[in-house]
Amino acid sequence: MTNTPSPPVPGTHRWVSLMVHDLVASRRFYGGLFGWEFDEGPSPLGAYVRALREGHPVAGLGEMAGEMAGGLRRVTAWLPYIATNDADATAALIRECGGTVAVGPLDVDQVGRLGIAADIGGAAFGIWEGGPRRSGRYHGVEGAVSWNELFAVETSGVGKFYERVFGYDVGPEPAQPPGSDFLTLRLGSRPVAGIRGAAGALPRDRGPHWLTYFSVVDLDDTLERVVALGGRRLTEPESSPFGVWARASDPEGAPFAVIVPTKPSGD
């Protein structure tokens, strides 16, 4: 079956990217872990490459310019980009709802209009106004984006933020155990992303953040390769209604999750 480009539906998570300190080393890590290949991204984004699997775009990797004041290193983290029909109106609504907009919105040739924002808890995410991808999204079982999940102090307040900004239907996830502090963001009946109340489990060095799940075939083998390639295994495998998963981090400390999903990932 041919996987053809599709127009963006507002509220869908259309892309993930990671800004790193050493782009060459990060390409080596993620290429070795997920079998990604890379091509050059849009030049206005600086040192930036697109990760490909079987010719389909999966994610983006870019290199940070310089350090913060005082010689401090910026924290690296995967960033989901959420589709919108009007990036400027969405940026204004983010501010109105108590969030912040750190970058843009700005035009990027052959990509669209992008912005980088943070919700009321400080978790960063991107907004993207653009046309269809030049190539359809990769839906394979190895190295595809399977899910994005927000790790927050609590779910109620930040859930209302995303509900108002992106028009999600926000509610408990029936598949989670009773009493779980977990919400699912939906467009109609379609699950788009999750919010997990992590409270005291949030890392001190990053606070609330989005976590990207990448699909794999063999979880144990993947976690062994994470360590062999210089990353860290952060948790033991855990079973959920959606698959067996675990958290890990790359050599620069950016957290991500790997999952053997119970069904193939979707857009």
Rank of each mutant, 00 (worst) to 15 (best):
G230V: 05
Y30W: 05
R74E: 11
V170F: 10
G41N: 12
V24W: 00
D205T: 08
V258H: 08
P255C: 08
E96D: 14
S26N: 01
A89Q: 11
R137D: 13
S6H: 10
V9Q: 11
T222A: 14
E163S: 15
L211G: 05
G126Q: 05
P10W: 12
V24L: 14
R232Y: 04
E96P: 08
N85R: 10
Y213Q: 00
G167A: 04
E238F: 15
G35F: 05
T90G: 02
L18I: 02
L219H: 02
V216G: 03
V103T: 14
F214I: 07
G11W: 02
P191L: 06
P80S: 09
H21S: 14
A198I: 04
N148W: 03
G200R: 15
E163H: 09
G231P: 03
V101F: 10
R53M: 13
G115M: 03
D267W: 11
D218A: 13
G31K: 02
P8L: 11
E54K: 10
T84Q: 07
R164G: 02
Y213I: 02
R233C: 11
L234E: 12
G266P: 04
R113E: 12
A91Y: 02
G194S: 15
H139D: 12
C97P: 00
E236C: 06
S156M: 11
S26Q: 09
G266S: 12
F125H: 07
T184D: 06
L106M: 13
C97L: 09
V227L: 06
G171R: 05
G104C: 05
G71L: 02
A117V: 04
F38R: 01
